[in-house]
Design a protein around this nucleic acid. Structure first.
Lengths: 236, 236
DNA sequence: GCCTGTCTTTGCGCCAGAGCAAACTCTGTG
DNA sequence: CACAGAGTTTGCTCTGGCGCAAAGACAGGC
């Protein structure tokens, strides 16, 4: 962690957490920030570690994974640029409940707990924005819970892919590509399925022209067909 | 909804959302509140309705249920006295994502959106407290997601019961009773299981002396055995 | 006290998808 | 360029727990 190297107010532009802050406030926020670079495969923090900092992802992609004592892993959240993470420190928790792992080289801003508290006090709008952000995430978590309870694997995978397309999709020639390396195992851990089932399903869809796979790569060719699978009332 | 009938500051004592507020602030909060009484079986608000009020449960118990287009229901949250709900209005959502149903006669305080905004501005501590509350709930949702992904039904049911015991348990002669009417179906909807599987599992546990069942009633006799089932590393 | 509707229990068959196993295919590295 | 390791595909088997069905058991209303 190094002191802030570029006091460029524009990095905060795409961060909902700081929406509505006046330039002076932005400078205040930035001045207190540290920059944290993390290379693909490295954790920003690990599950169980003492929670002492709060982060905003500026560039790259992370996944928040929880692992169970029995060795299973679950991807509880994919963190996209502009999102905050490590938000447990906002809520008086002392340890991180998940590991934040860089799925590609990433850059984050960070603030330690005390600094964050001070910023919250000085700029109450941040608290309101944080509330909105966490709320959205809560809803997302509940949706996924509902899906996992009520839907069959195929449909859950479709939902997961659509979510990825929406939040981390990059438009390319003839489709939308998930903008970071993603394994079948990752998709399995997001949907409560096994690697094998995900692989089979994606292969089938590839055969149907819905998407193109590849090593750590997914390109959705026909998003609307995925929507049809995800939403269709009648069971397939 | 009727105007505040009892301006008794003490009702706010057990509400974490208003922790740390000075007496004057409490009075301010209370003066703006309305009291909403709701009888068992009635909804406080329904999924899809316009979100125009925010609530704190003073007495009773609610369940937050989401239903899918296909008719399945999921219990996303059990609301205990002192908790807030309808918190989507805090986050700029326009419609309630779930139905809040009274599982017994209940009393809630309510504030309309505009009033709430004003209170938040005047008493920033509320925003901080709300942040903590939603954060806890997010973690809870993620835990349940993880359980649903990685654990077999029996263990998930054990976890759900323990959660109920913890947050809505009433110590009675020789055990802990869940302090509101709860059906096997409810437990099923909390754990992503079917009514039948829950019934079978509870019957088995009743046979083992871990708990006593009954119509809409569960009394846990040996919580530690439940913990053993929930936590044990080796699969049963 | 009886009746009705709701909740619960239990039996049985079946299948989605997990678990296991093995081969195959990339990609980066020495 | 061969090799190692990680990621992917695919086949086969087996089973947890769902779906369906039907019979009890209880509580509240009349």
């Amino acid at each position: 962690m190094v002191p802030n190297l570029r006091p460029d107010r524009s990095i905060l532009a795409g961060v909902p957490l700081f929406a509505g802050l006046d330039p002076a406030a932005c400078d205040d926020v930035l001045a207190a920030a540290h920059i944290r670079r993390v290379v693909k495969g490295d954790p920003v923090f690990e599950q169980g570690a003492e929670a002492n900092a709060f982060f905003v992802l500026v560039d790259g992609h992370l996944k928040a994974v929880q692992s169970t004592p029995s060795g299973h892993q679950v991807v509880v959240h994919v963190i996209n640029p502009g999102e905050f993470f490590g938000c447990v420190v906002l809520m008086g928790q002392t340890h991180y409940p998940a590991t934040a792992l860089a799925v590609r080289d990433s850059i984050a801003l960070s603030w330690d707990v005390a600094t964050l508290r001070r910023l919250l006090e000085r700029h109450p709008a941040i608290a309101t924005n944080a509330l909105a952000g966490i709320g959205t995430r809560l809803q997302d978590a509940q949706s996924r819970f509902r899906e996992l309870s009520t839907e069959r694997v195929e449909r859950r995978i479709a939902h997961a892919l659509l979510r990825l397309v929406r939040h981390a999709g990059k438009k390319i020639e003839g489709g939308v590509e998930i903008d970071f390396p993603i394994t079948r195992q990752d998709v399995a851990e997001m949907t409560g399925a096994t690697l094998h089932t995900v692989s089979r399903t994606l292969s089938k869809w590839e055969g149907e022209g819905i998407l193109d796979g590849g090593r750590q790569k997914i390109v959705v060719r026909q998003p609307h067909l995925l929507v049809a699978i995800a939403e269709e009332l009648e069971d397939r």
